[in-house]
Amino acid sequence: MNLRGYSQKLRALVFTKGGVAHWWAQRFTAVLLLPLLIWLVVNILYLFSADIQVVSEWIGSPVNAILLTLFTLVLFHHAQLGLQVVIEDYIHTFWLRSFAIVSVKLSLAILCILCLGSIIKIVLLG
């Protein structure tokens, strides 16, 4: 395969494959986020002024820890999908677009891991 063919194949692979799945994933995560966000906002109102022991106990309780983990995963996935669409719409230079998408994915993945790690630490060690 020559370089031009390879580039076109890569382009098709990165930007055209999975468009329908992307669309559905964005809607699915949006619908999941609705109840999770309402739950979180109501609870943050209660935690807003609380001291760290109260917050730590709240996060550490099994139901909250599970819901918070679910929220974290869905939130970062939704953010990644949304930012990818914005990048694809406004950045037309191929390498810059790829770089932006990969950077966003990587950054959000790191943030997500930090959240999950923190939740695990709070559950296990308080």
Partner: peptide, 13 residues
């Protein structure tokens, strides 16, 4: 803004 959420969890941890 998600960094505030991350910061909050990390700070509690």
């Amino acid at each position: 803004g998600t960094f505030v959420f991350v910061w909050w969890l990390v700070a509690v941890a």
